[in-house]
């Protein structure tokens, strides 16, 4: 087996004196879709932000593409071609859709902007209709699409998505998950996905992890986790269809 693209080993993250991650181990291989599920407050978003260096891990190591990024500043991590659609989307509200997308291409000084624009517009045609609308006036689903599209504009090798289905209609969720699958299949993009929508997210994923209280308690292929009694009881009850 080759080296994983992303390796997380024994990572502990604190907010002040409160420990949020209690020693997390996790691997994401190149070309994989990996899903992490867990209850509210388990530490999923914290892990995602720790990979991005904000906050930094107090203990442990995070290695990406052979480079230790544990102590790297956030903007340098982003320049290693990891892109993120963070929790809460964090689009630029007063800037237009187009300008938001431009900021996604900022690390290359907008060099391949026009080219990539066509690609994200074909992925999310809705955004092309709204190209000159201010980001803050988009609907929730459109904002989510914009956050993902903006992350894609940097031509990432690895994409981190924090709850992309949050607050979206089932049809839009399907659209977004289809888009993720398509990116993975056609471009071999590596995706690390945090989701509450466990059923769809695990179906989409090659592998999955379950996080409870700042620790990984289970891992396996998407199918294995979907079949597991514990996962069904805790995260899928009533949700499976």
């Amino acid at each position: 087996m080759t080296e994983p693209l992303l390796t997380v080993r024994g990572v502990k993250t604190y907010y002040g004196n409160i420990i949020a991650l209690k020693g997390v181990d996790l691997d994401v291989h190149e070309g994989e879709i990996v899903t992490m599920i867990g209850a509210n407050g388990a530490g999923k978003s914290t892990l995602m932000m720790t990979i991005f260096g904000a906050p930094q891990a107090r203990e442990g190591r995070i290695v990406y593409a052979g480079t230790d990024i544990t102590r790297m500043p956030t903007h340098m991590i982003a320049r290693m071609r990891i892109a993120q659609s963070p929790e809460g989307r964090r689009i630029f509200p007063r800037m237009t859709v187009l300008e938001n997308l431009q900021m996604g291409a900022a690390i290359d000084e907008f060099a391949h902007f026009d080219e990539d624009l066509n690609q994200v517009f074909s992925l999310f045609p809705r955004l092309s209709e709204r190209a000159h609308q201010r980001g803050g006036t988009l609907s929730g689903g459109e904002q989510q699409m914009l956050a993902i599209a903006r992350a894609l504009m940097s031509r990432p090798k690895m994409l981190l998505l924090d709850e992309p289905s949050l607050g979206l209609a089932p049809l839009v969720v399907k659209q977004i998950f289809d888009a993720i699958r398509e990116l993975n299949r056609s471009q071999g993009m590596t995706v690390f996905l945090v989701e509450q929508n466990a059923f769809h997210a695990l179906k989409l994923a090659h592998r999955g992890y379950v996080m409870v209280n700042g620790l990984i308690t289970m891992s396996g292929t998407g199918k294995e986790l979907l079949a597991s009694e514990e996962v069904r009881a805790a995260y899928l009850e009533g949700g499976a269809h």
Binding site: R90, F92, E99, A106
Partner: peptide
């Protein structure tokens, strides 16, 4: 230019700027 756009993005959301690779 990139720098002016980065200023405006900074005004809107500093954390998002950083995760887009902008040196705030």
């Amino acid at each position: 230019l990139p720098i002016g756009r980065a200023w405006e993005a900074l005004r809107e959301d500093e954390i998002a700027c950083r995760s887009l690779g902008i040196n705030t």
